[in-house]
Amino acid sequence: MNTSTNTEPHVPPRIGLIGLGSIGHIHAEHLQTLASEGVVELVGGMDIASEACERFENRFGVRAYENPDDLYETVDAVIIATPNRFHEEYAVSAFESGLDVFLEKPLAHNLRSAERIAKAAEKADGIGMVGFLNRFNDAVRVFKHYQRQGRFGEVTHVEANYVRRRGVPGRGSWFTNKEISGGGALVDIGVHAIDLALYLLSFPEVDELTGVTRSQFGGHEDYTYLEMWGEDGEGVFDVDDSASAFIRCADDRTVSLEVAWATNRPPTTEFVVQGTEGGATLDLDGNITIYEASNGGAPHFADSEIATRRLPAMRSELRAFLSAVAHDEPPKLNTVEEALVVQRVLDGIYRSSEGGGAVSLRENPISASD
């Protein structure tokens, strides 16, 4: 980290982007908005593809490099938005260069790689943060506010749904190539659902889980969709397009998980939370309903509808990272350690699906040295 940034928090951190595809451009757009507030300076980008560098330079008016070392010399921190397989390469080198690192979810394409990133982050002087933007969703923030006040008592179960009816993000792209992505719907959007569910439970220790992954729609020639986030490519489709799992945590806290890129049911991003004093339904569209019961006056149920402002969650997330960089303080949310727990759950669900039974996470058979 730059010394002047450490001692003068009012000096905007200099940020560079690694991975100049669609997600990189979205980050850059938010960074430019934040730059207008004086909280950041977007100084450059990096991609191994010269065409991507040229597009980035033309659109955002900053230098783009094909070698990460050239970028590292100009910045205080980097945002890594590459395909999953390349997270480790850039995260480890950035940490070793003394930089602060924001890494898009998931931590890596597999558990071994994720553990090596976590090991590098632990040794590094710079801070690390992982891109689970839904923690910054206004509905989630409101829920956590009331949770801290004790309104829900002990939260014991989360029903986590992250379901698209037809939403494969580009068949034949890197998203659907297991070697590059590490998995399909479970890795792409399931990682959000797992992280948020554990966050709503205050990140208990995960004991065991059972799960099933499926590939039923995305690889078929007659896959029917109305719109697609990406575009069809010429590559393979060898990943899951849906997953179901049950996760058991310490003190009998549990998560039921339903994830899909494609399925024959209504789409939903609804999280149902059960607590000993109250419960809630959160929708990532920004709405909350709180469910309570009382004997006050007479026995009754009370359902409270809450609407939020729905500010851009990614921008709020980046603002938190930039604040941590500017003040040289570890982030309070989205830590690398928490992301490693999520990665172990992902790995466990795949192992359970392959083996047909429950998987214990109390004994982790993989170490970073493997």
Rank of each mutant, 00 (worst) to 15 (best):
T3H: 11
T3L: 15
T3A: 14
T7S: 06
P9Y: 09
R14T: 02
L17N: 05
I23H: 01
I23W: 13
I26S: 03
H27D: 14
E29L: 13
H30M: 13
L34T: 07
G38I: 11
V39E: 00
V40Y: 10
L42F: 11
G45I: 12
D47V: 14
A49F: 14
S50C: 06
G61A: 02
Y65H: 05
D69E: 15
D70G: 01
D76C: 10
I80C: 04
A81V: 12
A91D: 01
V92C: 02
S97P: 09
S97L: 12
L103P: 01
K105M: 10
P106R: 01
N110S: 09
N110C: 14
A120M: 08
E122D: 11
E122S: 09
K123H: 12
G128T: 06
M129I: 11
G131W: 09
F132G: 02
L133W: 13
N134R: 06
N134T: 12
N134M: 12
R135F: 13
D138L: 13
A139E: 08
A139Q: 04
R141I: 14
K144P: 05
K144L: 15
Y146E: 08
Q149M: 14
F152K: 06
V155L: 00
T156N: 00
V158S: 06
A160Q: 02
N161W: 13
Y162H: 06
V168C: 13
P169V: 05
P169G: 00
G170D: 03
S173V: 10
F175H: 08
T176K: 07
N177P: 03
E179W: 01
I180F: 07
G182S: 08
A193T: 02
D195S: 04
D195F: 09
L198F: 04
L200Q: 03
P204I: 03
E205F: 13
D207P: 01
G211I: 09
S215G: 04
Y223M: 08
Y223S: 08
L226P: 03
E227R: 03
E231Q: 05
D232V: 09
G233Q: 08
D238P: 00
S244R: 05
A245C: 08
C249A: 11
A250D: 07
D251A: 15
D252T: 12
D252P: 05
T254S: 14
A260N: 08
W261Y: 15
N264T: 15
T269S: 12
T269P: 07
E270G: 07
F271T: 08
V272P: 07
T276C: 06
T276G: 02
G278Y: 11
G278M: 12
A280Q: 03
G286F: 11
N287C: 12
I288N: 04
I290H: 07
N295K: 04
P299C: 12
F301G: 11
A302Y: 10
I306R: 03
I306D: 06
I306S: 02
A307D: 15
R309G: 07
M314F: 12
R315N: 10
S316A: 14
L318N: 00
S323G: 00
S323N: 07
V325A: 06
H327S: 09
D328A: 15
P330D: 08
L333F: 15
E337Q: 10
V345T: 06
D347L: 11
I349L: 01
S352Q: 01
G357S: 13
V359Q: 03
L361H: 02
R362I: 00
P365R: 02
